[in-house]
């Protein structure tokens, strides 16, 4: 396993460098530039040229790239063109919000999807199955922003209640923080759960037809043990793969959910970065997202072995 892990980790490096090159180039190909956005309505030509030079944006792109990459290797993700503040500081302030939201969402998504998927498979073609499949399709179809807006709007009209609008950090007041995070996490989790539930059901249906399940049952094992210990564990491997990919969906969903619930996470930071062509912010966040997704998928690959001892890393 160790050589496998080392090889995979080595592959992460060129992957991330590739990501930085693509992102660095693409953001500069977008119409509009950071200087015009900074000066907005007041972009006198002289001011724009001065500012472009001050920010170092008048230099060749490859020079800017290698300077930025050099900084990244030393832990400096750059300075925001818009706020003139270190991107690393802003990200470290915001990362806990998105990480908490994402982890809660994945946990909630799994808590919903796995039991529902199992029940749906076990009760195949019954009313329960149809209802649960309908719910799963609804979860897939309902956009997070719509659900979030409903959850914000309807209670405010019916009961004059809304989740707290002023964000409280977890370490300042855990109760208040969880009260604020739980609804957006459920919304994000619901978006995840539809796909996971359907895949869980499909895999369970396949596994439940395997000989070893029949054998386990014939041995007189308890139904729960057959389903959860023998069937689910094997059915879960493709679901695990999906979970690795769903990290990207969590990141994308966070952009929307954080805006709706006024959460100061990195999803919103990315959105503002794109709106203002704040190149260092976009580059840094994409690098971080790419790293998280690559590592999450690596973790998933490693977990295969735990779920299925037959899997060998070579």
């Amino acid at each position: 396993m160790h050589p496998y892990l080392a090889r995979r980790l080595l592959l992460v490096v060129p992957t991330l460098i590739g990501v930085t090159m693509v992102v660095f180039s693409l953001v500069r190909l977008l119409p509009g530039d950071a200087v015009s956005m900074l000066l907005q309505d007041y972009a006198y030509a002289k001011d724009a040229d001065e500012m472009r030079a001050r920010l170092g944006l008048d230099r060749p792109v490859y020079v800017q790239y290698f300077e930025w990459l050099g900084g990244v290797l030393q832990g400096n993700l750059g300075t925001s063109l818009r706020s003139n503040e270190p991107v690393t500081v802003e990200i470290s302030n915001r990362m806990p919000v998105t990480a908490e939201l994402g982890l809660m969402a994945i946990a909630i998504g799994l808590l919903i999807a796995v039991p529902v998927g199992v029940i749906s498979a076990v009760r195949q073609d019954t009313r329960t199955d149809y209802v649960l499949r309908g719910v799963a399709i609804a979860m897939l179809a309902i956009p997070g922003f719509w659900l979030g807006t409903l959850v914000i709007t309807l209670p405010s009209i019916w009961w004059q209640w809304t989740p707290p609008l002023r964000y409280t950090r977890l370490w300042d007041d855990p109760g208040k923080n969880l009260g604020q995070m739980i609804i957006p996490a459920i919304i994000l989790g619901i978006a995840l759960s539809g796909t996971v539930m359907r895949l869980t059901r499909a895999q369970m249906l396949e596994v439940l037809r395997q000989d070893y399940v029949r054998t386990a049952s014939a041995k007189g094992l308890d139904e729960r043990a057959v389903v959860f210990r023998h069937a689910l564990r094997n059915a879960f491997i493709p679901v695990l793969t999906l979970l690795g990919l769903e990290v990207a969906i969590v990141v994308g969903g966070a952009v929307v959910v954080e805006s709706v619930f006024a959460l100061p996470g990195i999803g919103r930071y990315l959105l503002e970065g794109i709106q203002y062509r704040d190149y260092p912010v976009i580059q840094a966040l994409n690098l971080i997202f790419a790293t998280v997704i690559v590592l999450a998928n690596l973790l998933v690959d490693l977990l295969y072995g735990w779920f299925d001892p037959r899997v060998r890393y070579s």
Partner: peptide, 9 residues
């Protein structure tokens, strides 16, 4: 950021 959230607030 969101207008619906402001209205709810």
């Amino acid at each position: 950021p969101d207008q619906a959230t402001r209205m709810a607030g």
